[in-house]
Amino acid sequence: MLVLYLAQAVNSGLALGAVYGLMALGFCLIYNSSRLINFAQGELLLLGGLVLFSLSQTLQLGPVSALLATGVFGFLLGHLLYSTTLGVMLLAQPLRQLMLTVAASLIWQGAAVLIWGKNPLKLEQFVTMPALRMGPVFLGPNTVTSLVLAVASVAVLSAFLGLTRTGRAIRAVSMNALAARLQGVNPVRAQALSFALSGILSALAAMAIGPQTMLRYDMGFGLGLKGFVAATLGGYTSLGKVFCGGLLLGVIEACLTLAFSADLKETLTYSLLVALLVLAPTPQSRQQKV
């Protein structure tokens, strides 16, 4: 019986963990390139999902066109967030920049309420994968889809950051912005691109979570915060570790739900974050960046 419960926890934990992993990657990209903690990360997911929902209502979207639309709108939303937050306050104190992302989060949430209302909206599953059984572990279609989407995103992002000139420029800025600038890299462009990439990742996360939990105007902040927890768990150092941090968080949360009430589960998750922040070395002190 316990094995069955655990298998169920792994199934739901991986489905949610894939989403946390994508959010964590977005968080890391922005943090490493600009040292900014983006409070509006969850709203990128929300708006990305809602735009996709509206598109699916008017157009007949297949898997490829849905992925393409997600990428394009995610990129545009990420860029829009950059131009309205960090882009207008490049020289401001970090705290003021951080608070502007809080205000942006309110504005985007308000816009979502005005345009799409407060009722939850169900996003259809654009990419459908078959269920998978591995011994006692059963992965449902939603879980497999989320995992495939997330792993493919990590692979493409790794290739982009490692193999292309622009990707290497982003990595250079994340390691040392001044040195990168001396080598002819434009740090502002790299930061803007990190926001845009983060937008794409968040929109993909919306595509994964929309069919599972539906899209609600107030879902962004909680998911953004979980992304931050996952990024901290992963250590901000490499894409793979950060993504695994997301998966791990999802599974830990699912197991905690089995043992405790929902309120205590949240308490333990956030306690874990505080403990990690206190015990782990600060990300600023690390040499290797994403």
């Binding site: 705290l95 915060l225 956030y270 974050l273 922040l277 600060t282």
Partner: peptide, 17 residues
């Protein structure tokens, strides 16, 4: 020891806890 942003997030978690 945490920097501005990380301290803000850690204390935010205390509030949620």
């Amino acid at each position: 020891k945490l920097g501005e942003g990380f301290l803000a997030m850690a204390t935010l978690c205390l509030c949620l806890i």
